[in-house]
Amino acid sequence: MMGLLSLLRKLKTTPDREVRILLLGLDNAGKTTILKKMSSEDISHITPTQGFNIKSVQTSGFKLNVWDIGGQRKIRPYWRNYFDNTDVLIYVIDSSDKKRFEETSIELNELLQEDKLNGIPILIYANKQDLFNASPASEIAEGLHLPSIRDRSWQIQACSAISGEGLKEGLDWACKNIKPKK
């Protein structure tokens, strides 16, 4: 009986589309914390990411396979190994680390010029908004010259990975802007 019932239940729902999301940004931007928060895991024991972490997050109609790649300068050259078949790029910025805005802007611009990421929608998380010295998302958008992006859809979302505020809004935007499969 068990087998029959589970079969019936499976027939009821159509399989969700699998989406590949790439999570990039400088070290200490909060990528792993965002990843863990998205999959409702404990975020109090985070360590710096060597290599990468992958998690599947279920949202309405989509199965998001999120790849979180370490952001340390030494491993940034390996980012390109993960570009293939990416549906959405999420770029994370530590809004409170003004000293490194220039560095993060350079890295972002290089990503935007990558052929393999051509035309792929980009979501920018202006993270750590819970900190008192965080810059507002609008200011960061100006600083990164986001309004001059013409070749793809983009969005900047203020968020706090620790409280989870803003994460869902960002993901909703990402899901709406995924290009249909060719």
Binding site: D27, N28, I43, S44, H45, I46, T47, P48, Q72, R73, K74
Partner: peptide, 17 residues
């Protein structure tokens, strides 16, 4: 970085530990 911290200041590397 020579002893394997991520950047110029190790203070952000200890994180949750």
């Amino acid at each position: 970085t020579e002893i394997g911290f991520q950047g110029e200041d190790p203070k952000t590397d200890f994180r949750g530990m």
